[in-house]
Simulated scan of single mutants.
Amino acid sequence: MFLSVVFTWFRYAAKAVATGFIFTTLLPLIFGLTLGIPTAQVLGLIASTVILQANAAFVGVGMGIHPAAILTIMTLVEVGAVLALYFVCDAFAFQSARVGNLLKRTEEKMKGVPLLARYGAVTLLILPVVPPFGLYSSVVIGWVLQWDRRLSFVFITIGWIGVATFLIFIALGFVSVFV
């Protein structure tokens, strides 16, 4: 029994690490190499995206990377982070009785609000924009509230692309926030 739990948890952890590595590092590096962007700049943008989230747009513009490349690299990092976080959350739910009980209580409460259960994932459009929540919290909120994973992923990504694009425009001087 214990060995089965360890193997299952290891499987979730391996999925999280592999997905995170492929989308947050490997694909952006391949993309950067294809476009002739120096590896150090791509790695800098990746690290900035992981740490600063959407504000990494300012770093990318400051490094002189083309705006479309910035958006693509940042979105690949976002996709990897979201998918990896889902796998990590699944691993904790599988292993922790407390998390499992939290999910059961949440599921019971969500049954009382069918509209929120059905359309709640749409709110994930704006959560990546809101500073206290951001990208990482959006994933956990959608996961805890047990919203449709694919729909949540789509809305988080759309919100991410929107805020990243807006910040790139600000960094390029097309949008003035404070006049």
Rank of each mutant, 00 (worst) to 15 (best):
A14N: 07
F23W: 09
V88S: 07
V59Q: 09
V50Q: 10
F31D: 00
M110N: 09
Q53H: 15
R150C: 00
L151S: 05
L103T: 00
G20Q: 07
D90Q: 12
G112M: 06
G173R: 02
L35A: 12
G142R: 03
K104N: 09
F166E: 06
I51M: 10
P67D: 08
Q146M: 10
A14M: 09
I170H: 01
V42P: 06
G80M: 08
T19A: 14
Q41I: 00
A18R: 00
Q146A: 08
F31Y: 14
L145Q: 00
A91Y: 10
S137L: 14
L76W: 04
G64D: 12
V5T: 12
R149A: 00
T8N: 14
T123N: 07
V5I: 11
T106D: 00
F92T: 08
T165L: 15
F87K: 07
L135H: 10
E108G: 02
G80W: 06
I161S: 09
S137K: 12
G100A: 10
G64R: 14
F178T: 08
A40H: 13
L43N: 11
A97P: 01
V99W: 06
G44H: 04
I156F: 12
P67Y: 11
Q95T: 13
G142S: 07
T72F: 12
I22F: 12
A54F: 15
F23N: 04
F92H: 06
G60L: 11
H66W: 09
T8V: 14
L43T: 12
F23E: 04
D90V: 00
L52E: 15
V17L: 15
A56K: 02
G134A: 02
F94D: 08
T49W: 04
F10K: 03
V175W: 03
I37M: 01
I70Y: 01
R105M: 05
V6I: 15
S137Q: 12
M63Y: 14
V122W: 06
G80Y: 06
G173W: 11
S48C: 06
F166M: 10
